[in-house]
Nucleic acid binder design. Structure first.
Lengths: 356, 356
DNA sequence: ACAAGACGATTATGCGCATTATTATCGCGC
DNA sequence: GCGCGATAATAATGCGCATAATCGTCTTGT
């Protein structure tokens, strides 16, 4: 139980070699022009074993080496509390992979919050340097930050698809477009002809991807897209009634139970009168055991694979393009909120919101 | 957007002083025998502002300083997945406090897992050194680890009461004993006379504390403690029937819904026939909206206060005993699983499990 | 017998900071 | 005109490691 921690110098003394030699053995990589005999190498290894040496990650990092720490930066609070837990599942996957790889996770909880959202400001950048690389989670659009990341050559990877910056951003995403397309096709296959999309039409990647899948699936079926703007639940129900929608797909930011209740208040049953599909796990905590039909984003796997990708980037392996921009499949959730259309229902209002 | 990060040397050059002077100004603390003029100080501060300097945490730490990183060590997986999320609420609190204090959180996810539980082995100790101090969560009993913590003088704090090591372990805990006592008193006040304790009687602190509160409350009411060993739900129901229990308090490790179902199968309604109290938030994910009566452990606040405590320890403030060993109150949860006893029910079997 | 490699290491340096030891300049009394 | 305390700073050192530059000592060919 030594008071002072054991350093490479201690190991070196025991093995009768220089500190540099110990470093070479540890890193198992000889700089050009340096050679070690097998015997010396073994002596060093023995000394390492006997002393129980383990590297000081701080010194390692300062000297320009790797320290097996990966940063995780979330643009919103990592653990929001109040039952809403968006990042949790990603962290489950990240932790799992980290454990396998022997990596510690650094959460940048100190980053300045500007306008309700964390920022990588100057001191943020500085702090990134603690870790070998960094995973980025959450919505954000700041070009200068991305640019900085790219041209400092600091290893990083996004969790969630990022198609900006000319495809130079490494990420592990989920195939929202394909998953949305498939569930909509399923609705079409069941006989639905008037299928609405409930959600805000933002410019963020998940939203645009979902909308694309929705729109294309309908287009291929010869049907029109119908955007139900994200409004009060009752207004949504009004739109459903007026347009005679027999099914809606729901952006996961919206509380599905709220909509369910509103439909109920207007005498519409799910799924008898209206089928409801959830485009991803709901961000709200559900209060009822009801299983919602739709698809699930493989968040744990995304986290794990992103860490794997990043660790390869850190190691300097050159990774192929398909590895740098991986899209994982979402899994369909059968649930109980989808059924065949109630054929008798017809629109009571205009087709105003029909989107070409 | 400088390629190389700005160092104290850069700031020093701009201000026309030495690097050491910059360090003095930054730390706002002059070592004995060093003096700075107000004017020099101001020049340095200006240079810091202009250059946007921010300290390199790695170098800071290597040089023996603080780096505003706090480690979090969990003896089990931090994010277990599968819906069970025990540490989550603590982390919410920790993160919140960390954000306030400008502190980053380092999760020691790399710690070796031995026998299903993380260990602070030699390399674990080494890695702790990255952070200024460390929060410890989860059950564990390894004396040598605790001893090491104590005599290396490394700042740390437990989340959860730790009365071992002669009260030298700093912690922020929850008052299980008091909370359990109060809910049992509430049952007694409602007229219950045969109240069982369902759960394993381990040696861990939470369990012994809960049992103590339960036992004392009954003793003060002139009643006997009745331990219902943690068994299959149906066996528990049998014990309830045989002993004529009108209420049980439930250790949170046990799935309350499972017990609820078993009671139902035997024709016993909650709370009409049996009142059920939960001694803390259930560790299982609940599948029904049912609100369980009992009490809630203030996990978020525990996390936050533990971080606050630790940051004071790191700063070297001397903290009083009551701050070093703080017990937070649990909040009572009214819920719907408690009612007056069904007076007609009487024991069908013996009083075998009565504990004096 | 002697230069030219091959072999097997070592020494030196710096990362960015905190901290200790040291220096330089002035004013003042005697 | 010289020592001495006060003032205001700087130079030097080390944290533990990675890495570049360097240095012996053999062996071999001629």
């Amino acid at each position: 139980m030594p008071k002072r921690r054991i350093t490479q110098a201690d190991v070196a003394a025991m093995a009768g070699v220089s500190q540099a030699t110990v470093s070479f053995v540890l890193n198992d990589r000889l700089p050009a022009g340096v050679r070690l005999s097998a015997e010396t190498r073994q002596r060093v290894l023995d000394a390492i074993r006997i002393t129980g040496y383990s590297a000081n990650p701080v010194a390692q990092r300062l000297a320009g080496g790797r320290n097996q720490i990966i940063g995780v930066f979330t643009y919103e609070a990592t653990f929001p509390g109040g039952g809403r837990d968006f990042y949790g599942p990603f962290l489950v996957g990240i932790e799992h992979a980290a454990e396998q790889l022997g990596i510690d996770i650094l959460l940048f909880t100190s980053a300045r919050v500007v306008e309700g959202r964390r920022r990588l400001t100057r001191d943020g950048w500085q702090r990134l340097g603690i870790a070998d690389g960094c995973l980025l989670l959450g919505q954000h659009e700041d070009r200068s930050e991305l640019q900085h990341l790219l041209d400092t050559n600091y290893p990083f990877a996004f969790i969630g698809k990022r198609s900006s910056e000319g495809g130079r951003l490494p990420y592990v995403g989920a195939d929202y477009t394909g998953a949305t397309r498939r569930v909509v096709e399923r609705l079409v296959g069941l006989g639905h002809r008037r299928i609405g999309y409930v959600g805000a039409l933002g410019t963020d990647q998940p939203t645009t991807d979902r909308w694309e899948g929705y729109r294309d699936a309908l287009r291929d079926a010869g049907l029109g897209a119908r955007l139900v703007p994200e409004e009060e639940p009752d207004e949504i129900v009004t739109a459903v009634v007026e347009q005679g929608l027999t099914a809606v797909v729901l952006s996961p930011e919206r509380d599905p139970e709220e909509l369910h209740d509103a439909l109920g208040r207007h005498g519409l049953d799910v799924p008898r009168d209206v089928s409801v599909l959830l485009l991803g796990q709901p961000h709200h905590r559900l209060r009822r055991p009801q299983e919602w039909s739709g698809y699930a984003i493989p968040r744990e796997e995304m986290g794990a694979r992103a860490l794997l990708l990043l660790s390869r980037l850190v190691a300097g392996d050159d990774v192929g393009d398909e590895e740098l921009h991986r899209l994982l499949e979402c899994t369909e959730v059968t649930g109980g909120t989808v059924g065949p259309p109630a054929s008798q229902r017809a629109p009571t209002g205009t087709d105003g919101s029909l989107v070409p």
